[in-house]
């Protein structure tokens, strides 16, 4: 009843040809399992939600329609800075490029 090994190997070879797999009767480690793995980079890289639109984009979108939108936080910030400047308490001006380039 025992089937000879050569016959089994023939069957295996035919199987491999049919299903387009590699014929490897000794079970040698060819590293094919690495090639079979799917790439998971795109899935991993899309974990955090990306920035879709900024307020600037939103403003630009409505510019052709001549509609102006004010960003409240930004207006508040500019007002605050103006108030500081009026009292002479604002941040100092940036140094010139020429002065800084002398340093290493």
């Amino acid at each position: 009843m025992a089937v000879p090994r050569a016959r089994l190997l023939d069957l295996m070879r035919a199987q491999c040809e049919l299903f387009a797999t590699t014929f490897n009767p000794e079970g040698v480690r060819t590293g094919n399992k690495i090639l079979r793995q799917r790439l998971r980079g795109p899935a991993l890289a899309s974990y955090y939600p990306r920035k879709v639109m900024t307020f600037r984009d939103f403003q630009d979108e409505f510019k052709p329609l001549e509609l102006e939108i004010e960003e409240e936080g930004e207006v508040d910030r500019l007002e605050h800075i103006a108030a500081l400047k009026a009292r002479g308490k604002s941040a100092p001006k940036k140094k010139r490029e020429a002065n800084t380039s002398k340093k290493k």
Partner: peptide, 30 residues
């Protein structure tokens, strides 16, 4: 920490093909 992790994810995505190719060579005993 989130920015760092995000950068790592993007770096991995960019280098994944190269890593898998090297891993294949390492595992291939032939």
């Amino acid at each position: 920490k989130i920015i760092r992790d995000h950068s790592k994810r993007k770096a991995y995505e960019a280098a994944e093909a190269e890593r898998q190719a090297l891993r294949y060579i390492v595992r291939n005993t032939t």
